[in-house]
């Protein structure tokens, strides 16, 4: 296989402080094309800060953080939809902000809505949607920019278990189809293992990466791998590392 595996995101010895709070220290991290990297860690350890740096919302206090692509998708924990816009107009928003012509915008929105399975709900307002559908809309909105690097900040954390699993499957499908690289923050070790090609474990504050695990399962993934002993063993190992890093 000669797939392009160039580095899209490169953190070298990154540190970050907010006043007296040392949020991150000595973070080394790369995300390459074809990779889906998840980060797990205790809350307050700087996971969101990591994404904010990657997206350019925040500047590092020390070290270097560079991205090789301008096409970055960012999915927040909250769907952040505009309440007064329909699903279709919400999905069109980013293309609109990037001055994509109207017809092109509409075409991209229709395709993205189709990809996340929301066809038929284009005219609905956010308040008429379930939490899962709102998150799908949010995903579709990012997909219209065809991102090369996709950042996710605990996007499914507020959803119920069944919705979450379904969205996990759809995200995997999108990852295989759309060929973006992913950096995914989550609280759930099982979710991290199921979605990722690599899982990183962060320590408590100041956050740094204390362990990394390659996930050996092939893509596209069979949902049933979650019930295999190999899967359970890996989840156990990562949970153990997480507890170690906590101390």
């Amino acid at each position: 296989m000669t797939a392009d595996t160039s580095v899209l995101l490169d953190f070298r010895d990154v540190s970050m402080r907010f006043g007296d709070t040392e949020a991150l220290t000595g973070v080394d991290l790369t995300v390459s094309r074809g990779e889906f990297v998840s980060v797990v860690g205790p809350s307050g350890c700087g996971k969101s800060t990591l994404l904010r740096i990657a997206s350019g919302l925040e500047q590092v206090s020390g070290g270097t953080a560079s991205t090789a692509s301008q096409r970055i998708g960012y999915v927040f924990q909250d769907a952040t939809l505009l309440a007064w816009r329909s699903v279709r107009r919400n999905v069109e928003l980013l293309a609109e902000l990037h001055h994509v012509p109207r017809a092109e915008r509409a075409a991209r929105a229709a395709a993205a809505i189709d990809l996340v399975g929301l066809t038929g709900f284009e005219k609905h307002l956010p308040r008429q949607l379930s939490g899962g559908m709102r998150m799908r809309t949010s995903l579709a909105r990012s997909l219209t920019l065809d991102p090369e690097l996709f950042l996710f900040d605990e996007p499914f954390g507020a959803l119920d278990e069944i919705t979450r699993e379904r969205l996990n499957d759809e995200l995997l499908k999108l990852f295989v189809q759309q060929n973006f690289a992913g950096l995914f923050i989550t609280h759930s070790v099982a979710e991290a293992v199921y979605l990722s090609t690599r899982v990183l474990v962060m320590s408590g504050r100041p956050g740094t990466i204390v362990a990394g695990f390659d996930v050996p399962f092939d893509m596209p993934r069979d949902p049933d791998i979650r019930f295999t002993p190999e899967f359970a063993a890996l989840v156990g190992q990562i949970s153990h590392a997480l507890r170690e890093g906590h101390r």
């Binding site: 919302l57 960012y74 927040f76 924990q77 505009l82």
Partner: peptide
């Protein structure tokens, strides 16, 4: 977050 979405 919406504010930042616009900024991004």
């Amino acid at each position: 977050a919406q504010w930042e979405l616009f900024r991004l």
